[in-house]
Each structure stands twice: as C-alpha cells, then as structure tokens.
Amino acid sequence: MCTVCGCDTPHHHPGHDHGHDHHDDHHDHGSSRMIQVERDILAHNDGHAARNRAVFAERGILALNLVSSPGSGKTTLLCRTVEALKARMPVAVIEGDQQTSFDAERIRATGAPAFQINTGKGCHLDAHMIESALARLRPEEDSVLFIENVGNLVCPAAFDLGEAAKVAILSVTEGEDKPLKYPHMFQAASLMVLNKTDLLPHLDFDVDACVAHARRVNPSITVLMLSARTGDGLDPWLEWIAERRRHTLAHRAESLEAKLAAVRATMDSSG
C-alpha cells in the first residue's frame, strides 16, 4: 500500500525516492495520481516481430528485410535473385510500397509467389503487417522470404519485422556519404549491398570512402558489390543468402531432432 495516499494501485508520487526533477509536476492529491509505466514504445511492434521470428524458426524460413532509398534497384536485384535461386530453393517475396502493386507483379512474373502490402500514408512496414501478410502468402517450409521494405532510409530502421537480417542496398548513384547521413539504417543492417557498380566508370563515387563510412557506423557490417542489371558480382550475394539459409536450416534440424528425441523418450517410457 502506498504510504502517501493509501491506495493499492502501483504508482508513484513526485518529490521523493527517484533521480529526476518533478518540481514542475502538479500533483493534486486525491483527484490525480502518478503511475509508473516503464513500457518500451516499440513493445507492441516487437511483440508481433517475436511471433514472426518464432514462425520463421519453426518453419525453417530465412527472412531478409531489404531496405534502401527509392530507386536503389531493390526490385531489379530481387527479380534477378529470384531467377537465380528458384531452381535451388523455394523463394517468396513480400513487397511494401505506399501505393501500387507494380513490384509484386514484377516478382510474380519471375514465377515466385509475392504479396503486396500498400502502406497508404505509412513510411515503413511494421511487424503486424508482416504477420498478416504471412497468413495470406504462406511461404513454403525451408524457403527464403525476401521482404522489400518501403523505399526510405530513415523509418524502416526502427521497426523489427522478425527478420534474420536487414540488408541495406545502396546504389553508387546515391553518393558515398549515405551511411553517415542515415546512420541508424546502416547500423541496423548486417549487410550493405553496393548496387549499380556498372555505372562506376561514369561517376565520382568513392567506394573505399563509402565502405569506411559504413564501417564507422557499424564496424561489423559485411559489404558486397554488384550490378543487378548486368549480373556482375551476383554470385557472392547468392552465396551470402545460401550461407544464412544453411544456418536457419541447421537450427530447424536441431530443434526437430530435439522434438523427435522427446517423442522417442515418451514412447520408450510408456512401453
């Protein structure tokens, strides 16, 4: 029970037992009270993200969240990637855009299942949107799911979708200083893909400076260079995906083996 006002609800009174200044708070005893909340603002999103992550683990799905500014070549890279991977592994795509289903149509033309989310005025995908999309798209077990986020180097950095990794795609026409200008995004990403390298001879883009900027905001970021248009440099990217997928599958195999062992143990003890 609170010794100040005598009520039983957990709460808090200003003016004692804590560090920061509350002298400016009105505290009209009896009609108003302080309540300690201590809740993360992103808790709602993160709850959905945790559920998505559990679904991905359970079903052996490698989910990659592709983030970039508009026009970096995400969809072209995805089409090319799907074409290259579809004979080797099941692939599915969730497309996020404010309007239109152009991108999902481009993906479907490659033969992969794709689901389009239109965020309307929204500037990013959130974990709840992905949860709803998964119910409709139902990606195959042991597949790779690419989530193409809304083209925006700011907002998508804040929202965990339950993915295994964020992949930041930066085209060399955008300027090498982008990792410093949008540090949250490059800090959240596990991999930076430098796209449109076929244009390098025509530009002043400083690759080394760009990589140094990315490493400055994220010392552990991996960097790959490719041209989605010509296909040059595509193999290391495909291998990066395959390696991540092997990890996902290994985790799933371990968890299935543990389940199997538990069922066998139950069977033996019931015999």
Binding site: S32, E38, R39, D40
Partner: peptide, 20 residues
C-alpha cells in the same frame, strides 16, 4: 577510436504518467 558499440541512449520508453 572509431569502433564503438552503442550500449546506452537508444531507449524509447513511456516512463510514467499522471492520471485522474
């Protein structure tokens, strides 16, 4: 040094409120 791993200052929380 430039290789820093952020360990604090990224919080976004609702701390407390005064209600009636």
């Amino acid at each position: 040094g430039a290789r820093l791993v952020i360990t604090g200052g990224e919080e976004m929380r609702v701390k407390e409120m005064e209600v009636e």
